[in-house]
């Protein structure tokens, strides 16, 4: 990667939720960088903390969840300390967001054009006509046919895939440096999903935007991401270049996840399954959070403190990483 300052730099981020039964840590000591023009995929099962990490970055944590330690730097500037108005100005201008459900992230009472021009005028010093022209250009860019006539339509007049394009246009219209896409294709059909993934990749490359792509779909990650972060129970389990992580996982959880997708076991009678389920946050085991489900667990895995990326080989938070001896194993 380049030596330039990363667009987004998350350092030892901890998010805590105080509850009656003690303090929960949905995000526990997570660190990663995203550079300009790079797509970082964040995968994990539900409850792994992937969306919570994204929300913490844009400052959209719902109370009582809060950042208790660690820092978030956007182009070298601390943003985790910003509040209220200062943060609001940053959102949209510096960071764009794309959420899972395109219907609920658009205002049903305003036309698509109103929503786009509002965002553009809020963040860029332009007049009404110029804003409208930019809005049309933004819609054309995301591949909406006849943008000039569709701009005055309401969200319900668009199909699911077109709505998600509008949301992407909205996220990108103020030319942010960072886009956080939280399950952007989960609600969409396969053919539309392929269109949206291709669009995200193209925009990322052309505009040099840094993208954090949160999803649970390994296939989408493989096709779109440059690097991938695997999360488990609020912690980073593995972080590395997508090809290496997916073909030769170091963390047993990543390996189990890959093996349990139906794609990986073509022709076989049974799928490999990871026994059990992810532990609840209030009831995490000592040491490595994965050890009760891990085939390779040893005494060291059960002892505190658990493994982290820093204390292990830098790629997987595991005391006994897999696939480390094999070199250049490239399986098609």
């Amino acid at each position: 990667m380049t030596e330039k300052t990363p667009v987004l730099s998350v350092r030892n981020l901890v998010v805590e939720i105080p509850t009656r039964h003690g303090i929960l840590r949905p995000v526990d000591n997570v660190s990663y960088d995203i550079h300009a023009g790079e797509i970082l995929g964040v995968v994990g099962e539900s409850g792994a903390g992937k969306s919570m990490t994204g929300n913490a970055v844009v400052g959209l944590l719902d109370r009582p969840a809060r950042i208790t330690s660690g820092e978030i730097l956007l182009s070298g500037q601390h943003i985790h300390t910003l509040k209220g108005e200062a943060l609001r100005r940053l959102r949209g201008k510096m960071m764009g967001m794309i959420f899972q459900d395109p219907l609920t992230s658009l205002n049903p009472l305003l036309t698509v054009g109103d929503q786009l021009t509002e965002t553009i005028q809020e963040h860029l010093k332009v007049g009404q006509t110029e804003a409208r022209n930019r809005a049309i250009a933004a819609l054309e860019e995301v591949g909406i046919p006849a943008a000039r006539s569709r701009i005055d339509s309401y969200p319900h007049e668009f199909s699911g895939g077109m709505r998600q394009r509008v949301v992407i246009a909205l996220a990108l219209c103020a030319e942010p440096d960072l886009v956080i896409a939280d399950e952007p294709t989960t609600a969409l059909d396969v053919s539309v999903q392929a269109q949206i993934v291709a669009l995200l990749k193209r925009l990322c490359r052309e505009k040099g935007v840094a993208v954090m792509l949160v999803t649970h779909d390994m296939g989408v990650i493989a096709e779109a991401a440059d690097r991938v972060a695997v999360m488990y129970a609020g912690r980073l389990a593995e972080l590395g270049p997508v090809r290496e992580v997916l073909t030769a996982a170091h963390h047993p959880y990543t390996a189990g996840l890959m093996a349990s997708t139906p794609l990986a076991s073509q022709g076989k009678e049974r799928l490999r399954q990871i026994p059990g389920a992810m532990p609840r946050l209030g009831n995490l085991p000592d040491g490595c959070a994965f050890h009760p489900r891990c085939d390779y667990a040893q005494d060291r895995c059960r002892a505190n403190p658990g493994p982290t990326l820093d204390t292990c080989d830098g790629r997987a938070a595991c005391w006994f990483p897999l696939n480390t001896k094999q070199k250049d194993e490239v399986s098609a």
């Binding site: 053919s191 392929a194 296939g219 493989a222 096709e223 997708t261 399986s331």
Partner: peptide, 13 residues
């Protein structure tokens, strides 16, 4: 063709 594949790193379709 449209279905995402895990062996198709950076596939351009």
């Amino acid at each position: 063709d449209a279905a995402p594949r895990m062996d198709a790193f950076g596939r351009e379709v």
